[in-house]
Design a protein around this nucleic acid. Sequence first.
DNA 1: TTTAGCACTCCTTCTCTCCGAGTGCTAACT
DNA 2: AGTTAGCACTCGGAGAGAAGGAGTGCTAAA
Lengths: 350, 350
Amino acid sequence: MELTARKKEILKILVDSYIATAEPLGSKAIASRMTEKVSSATVRNELADLSEMGYLEQPHTSAGRIPSAKGYRLYVNELMERKTLDGEEAERITSAVQRELRGTDQLIARTGQMVSTFMDYPTYAITDHRHTATVRRFELLEVDEGSVIAVVMLSDSRVKSTLLPLELSLAEGALQSVTPLLNTHFTGLSHAEMHSRLMNLTDQVVPENFLLLNRVVNYAAELLEESERKQVYVGGTSQLLKMPEFRDIDKAHDLMHFMSDSGAQLPVPAGDAPMQILIGPENVSEALKESSVVVASYDIGDGMRGLVGVVGPTRMDYAAVAARLSYFAESLTKMFGKAQQLPPKEDEKP
Amino acid sequence: MELTARKKEILKILVDSYIATAEPLGSKAIASRMTEKVSSATVRNELADLSEMGYLEQPHTSAGRIPSAKGYRLYVNELMERKTLDGEEAERITSAVQRELRGTDQLIARTGQMVSTFMDYPTYAITDHRHTATVRRFELLEVDEGSVIAVVMLSDSRVKSTLLPLELSLAEGALQSVTPLLNTHFTGLSHAEMHSRLMNLTDQVVPENFLLLNRVVNYAAELLEESERKQVYVGGTSQLLKMPEFRDIDKAHDLMHFMSDSGAQLPVPAGDAPMQILIGPENVSEALKESSVVVASYDIGDGMRGLVGVVGPTRMDYAAVAARLSYFAESLTKMFGKAQQLPPKEDEKP
DNA sequence: TTTAGCACTCCTTCTCTCCGAGTGCTAACT
DNA sequence: AGTTAGCACTCGGAGAGAAGGAGTGCTAAA
């Protein structure tokens, strides 16, 4: 059977309406909204065809029809009007990103919170590590005899540091001898490698210094471990309760529970795609089979990606969500680009 | 009217049962559970008295009775059996705290997540700043001509650092001259004071160095600002949906929304109390008037407190929640105590 | 190919009734 | 004076129809 222009128009009208109201639309209502004036009976024939082709489903015989996953997919791919944000909203997003995200430690949480304030759906934010970080450089600073500050610069240009209280007081010149050891033996390693390297060095380092070395390496290894761990923020789940498809408490509970407790399984765009839309059964996780997800990635720099996503019923407002989310991701990418921007050849000035 | 021992026993039976089942208990059932055997009519008389005294409420005339806020208060203060955790659970909590919380950046989020896995109710975690932090010491490390690492040690012993890309290449000896400037003029100040001090110094610093100074001071000021901001983690809100009192979607939505979006208004124990229980209308926030909160504080060291709390219906299992939460808080205090523990006089060893 | 007409389906909403748990009160009992 | 048995009464919840209505599917005519 042919998917004629008229069938597409009908499908579009139906999906648009269903997205807005969550109510099936009858043939008569569809007929009245079409450009070319036809009778409801004609529409009914077309609807029957669309059902047969798998684009529509009927909750029960005597109800209107609602889009199937296949129908939404067609809608998303071809039918829906791509929206662009109006200037005011774009402005609000840009300024929020600039204002809130400058140099925070809690990147993921803050990003997630922010996205969630701009969306009418639950949202999530995750880190996506494409390659694991290693230590690029160590520095030690003396505080007093009992403690030092360890500064660790990672391969992705993040700098982390901590106060390390020591059980023994610092030997004379310990910092000067341990720092080069660290920088020659422990840069560029994974955390597992760091631990085994430490074992190998046990004999070659004077015991007074080994304690310090040990503490610093452990700190760095923990850091690497922590930064490999997927960070997840989930927010706005209470929005679900306002949606008619989640009036069924168990459904709402299942989805909320999944998002909060198995957040690490939330979808990630395939490959390098900047954005991906997953509709109902296209989702891998069982808990998402009746929901849709829109997820966008942004570039943190140094080969790191961040992800922001939106979860909602399959009838979610794809056009609006996609527009906002991609604008968001662009703003974030832009911000990180600017922040990391090392001046290219400014140093030739004087 | 007198609150006799028998009235108390009846109240205790009733609250215990209502906490467990969320169903009102009839006079007959109460009678059968009492130590001294009395008839249901006697119990009914007592119940009428308890109602009159304000400890009980009736949803409607022909239903059983349920405890009022005043009833719960009496129960919490006098009647309930204080539980202690069984060894296995205590062990699980201690080890989780030790394992998960070692030296993480994301203290609040991780703590909150962890508490939430041990509770059958929504939980929250907040920081409670008793006095604001200031910078204790600055250090600068050279990376290349275009960027430096700024290390900032705060008055609460936290150490923070970042890579600062500069627009201009570094002047010879800049680090050596800027670092003392920072340490003499910008330690011990609030972020507002830092900004105004910076203004005053504009003329006294050579322009090549001012840029660097400016960047570092801004970084530190942002840091102070960020650390003053209350950090909030909220988790486990989906648990609400399993409770009969939140079968009403609107109620569930209101509370979840409040917790997620106005988390900063969640209760904090008054004064120095290690734990506090707030029952229904005892709560200040309108959204919590029909719920109860148990909140405990733990000591992070350096005058900082952290808070962990549990939110639930007024019939929450106070005994179990209080036991777990206070054990949790103790574990956390212990962990921070150990971590921060500067060796007292070990340095006299050699 | 389109349209009008019409029987049929099935969900929703409403009303009514019945049932039972639980109370409040009175009067008798200890 | 406190306790108990007895009994009428209240009120919410479950269940059964019944009425209403939106929407379909099919047939036959244009």
